[in-house]
């Protein structure tokens, strides 16, 4: 057991999986000698060499496209897109190929690849370095979309993603990279993809969140407990797609009140699918309309306005209180 931040925990997952399985290779911009711009692949180039930790030319479509070819051949590429805001230059590869090879060949081929991307705000970064765009991937059939919320689950989920026979888009919250250290066991640990976790048990209200927003939800839940005597249950999705509707519905049935928090813009965002899924199966248990606390439907234009653009504790509290009073 060691106290690790998320960067170190992810690095440990990569290191151990590469030691375990020679088919695991890393491709990306600056992932080699530099260890990645966030140092997630730090020291792996030295340990495994440039054939396995590949400093690729600067071209997202070929990073993902070549990753597809490697995966079809039987390797397990872990591709890094330096920031999720740059992934639109390879988006066609996701939609046309990464997601479809299994179906198009009726299982003759599959694409066991992981694509890691830093996402989200809170680190005072420039345009195209702050967006939350998980909804695009969650919408594509055939992709799994995973967003951990802390060092320990980041490590376990990355191991699970590498071992998954299907393509996994793995978003890493920049705001969590160095945020907090957690106890991470030395031995390899995995977690099931496709399962949410109850991050805080409660009876009065369900707050659904993932990634950085789990921290926001926890702060809000603590305030609700202290100030309002209300116990909120927090569902940490961990996997956006396929969505763990069972856990969501069970919590909604228990509490009857749901607030969803995400950094992605509201319209057609994950919150809409989460709310609709709860309505499908728990409508009669709801005591109030499901509330969403999200970014507005406005593109991110620079960190001078960031605080006003990201969902924060006061908004979650307001939505929770509104829901409780309804």
């Amino acid at each position: 057991m060691a106290k690790l931040n998320t960067v170190k925990a992810l690095n440990l997952a990569l290191l151990q999986e590469m030691e375990r399985d020679e088919d695991v290779v890393i491709i990306g911009e600056d992932v080699g000698v530099d260890g990645g711009v966030f140092r997630v692949t730090d020291d792996l180039h030295r340990k495994f060499g440039g054939k396995r930790v590949i400093d690729s030319p600067l071209a997202e479509a070929a990073i993902i496209g070549a990753g597809v070819g490697m995966a079809l051949y039987g390797l397990k590429p872990v591709c890094e897109i330096q920031f999720s805001g740059f992934a639109f230059q390879c988006f066609h590869q996701f939609e046309n190929h990464v997601a479809r090879f299994r179906l198009r060949t009726l299982g003759r081929f599959h694409v066991p690849m992981v694509v890691r991307m830093p996402y989200g705000g809170g680190v005072r970064a420039l345009e195209h370095h702050t967006e939350s765009e998980e909804q695009f991937y969650a919408h594509i059939p055939g992709l799994k979309m995973v967003i951990p919320s802390g060092a320990r689950n980041a490590r376990a989920l990355l191991v699970a993603a590498i071992r998954d026979p299907d393509p996994v888009i793995f978003f890493e919250a920049k705001a969590l990279y160095h945020a907090a250290k957690e106890d991470v066991p030395d031995e390899i640990e995995t977690m099931p993809i496709g399962r949410a976790q109850v991050a805080r048990a409660g009876t009065d209200l369900t707050i659904v969140a993932y990634g950085t927003m789990v921290r926001v939800a926890k702060e809000a839940a603590d305030a609700l407990s202290t100030d309002d005597g209300v116990e909120a249950e927090i569902i940490d999705l961990l996997t956006i797609s396929p969505l763990d509707r069972e856990t969501l519905v069970a919590s909604a049935k228990k509490t009857g009140r749901v607030v969803i928090v995400h950094e992605a813009p509201r319209s057609f965002g994950p919150g809409a699918e989460i709310a609709a899924s709860i309505m499908d199966e728990a409508f009669l248990y709801l005591e109030a309309p499901i509330r969403r606390v999200t970014a507005n439907d406005v593109s991110f234009v620079g960190f001078a306005r960031e605080r006003s653009m990201l969902p924060a504790v006061p908004q979650v509290l307001a939505a929770a209180r509104e829901t409780l009073k309804f």
Binding site: V25, K51, R52, A61, A62, I64, G65, A66, G67, V68, G69, M70, A71, L72, Y73, G74, L75, P77, H92, Q93, N96, H97, R104, T105, F109
Partner: peptide, 25 residues
Amino acid sequence: DLPICIPVATQLPHAVGLAYAAQYR
């Protein structure tokens, strides 16, 4: 063989990846 690929040129990076993997192994 890979299957027919309709989106123009998008199969070419796959070929590079296949060739890389073959070389790697």
